[in-house]
Simulated assay, not measured.
Amino acid sequence: MEVRSYDYVHRRGVRFLSWEEFASLGRKLCEALASERIETIVGIARAGLFPATLAACALRLDLYPVRVSRRLQDEVRFPSPVWHVPLVAAVAGKRIAVVDETADSGETQALVAEQARTLGATEVITAALVSHSWAKPQPTCVALTTDELVIFPWDQQVLIDGSWQLHPEMVTAIAAQQADSKPE
């Protein structure tokens, strides 16, 4: 079975992560990255900058953000990841970690890792706070592997028309999961 990015029907269960759980998973990811002797962090914007910034601060490393996404203005618009902010040449000669919040298909991290190698990074590993079992390739370092729909703290309260509410995409994802689980 091939699972596409944002194909929420294939998630099994819902997990709301608190900021405290994010911090705990972040520490676990940092420990894994420290054992890899990483010299530089590359964070994938937008949400991948949360764990990437945590790792860069905790490990006292430089952070270089990139933006590679299927989204524009928070809406999925492309079938595959598109470069919006390129990777800097400063990764040349360094052992780097490409960090994202979720490894869903694995395609975004693979694209950034390939570009880092092209720019001369001496070693490239991938890291994700959360990975799904179907991500190909799987990240080198992962804090949590689950096929649940993980709702991060930053998606639990978004401001829409002056009102704080659950991210609409998460509302739709939960509904899709519930519809899929009903007996016919």
Rank of each mutant, 00 (worst) to 15 (best):
E101G: 03
E101A: 12
V9P: 12
Y6S: 11
R95W: 05
R15E: 04
I96Y: 13
T126C: 15
M1D: 10
V91K: 13
Q115D: 07
E123W: 04
D100L: 10
V3S: 15
R70A: 04
P65Q: 11
A173H: 06
L33Y: 09
R67V: 04
V76F: 15
S35A: 03
Q109D: 09
E101I: 07
K28W: 00
T118F: 01
C57G: 00
E114V: 03
T172K: 10
V85H: 03
A23L: 09
S24I: 13
V150L: 01
I38C: 08
A143C: 10
Q138P: 14
R4P: 04
A23Y: 01
F152E: 05
Q109A: 15
E123P: 01
Y8D: 06
V142Q: 12
R71D: 15
E39I: 13
L166I: 12
R77V: 11
S18I: 15
E31N: 04
V98W: 15
D104Y: 02
R46Y: 11
V42I: 13
F152D: 04
A92M: 05
K182P: 09
L49T: 02
H167V: 04
V76Q: 14
A45I: 03
A92E: 03
T126S: 15
R67N: 07
T122P: 00
E75Y: 10
D100I: 00
L87T: 14
I125M: 06
M1G: 10
W134V: 02
R95G: 05
P153M: 02
V98S: 15
A47V: 02
S80Q: 08
A173T: 06
L54R: 07
T53H: 15
I38N: 06
E107K: 02
T126M: 15
Q177P: 07
R70E: 02
E20Y: 03
W154K: 02
D147L: 04
F152M: 13
A179S: 11
A179D: 07
L49Y: 08
A110L: 11
Y64K: 02
R60K: 14
A143M: 10
A34D: 05
A121L: 11
D7Y: 02
D7I: 02
R37Y: 09
L87Q: 12
M1H: 07
S131I: 00
T53I: 12
A89C: 09
T122D: 09
V124D: 05
V85P: 00
S163E: 15
S105Q: 01
Y8G: 11
R12Y: 01
P139H: 04
H84Y: 04
V76E: 14
E21C: 14
K94V: 08
A55F: 12
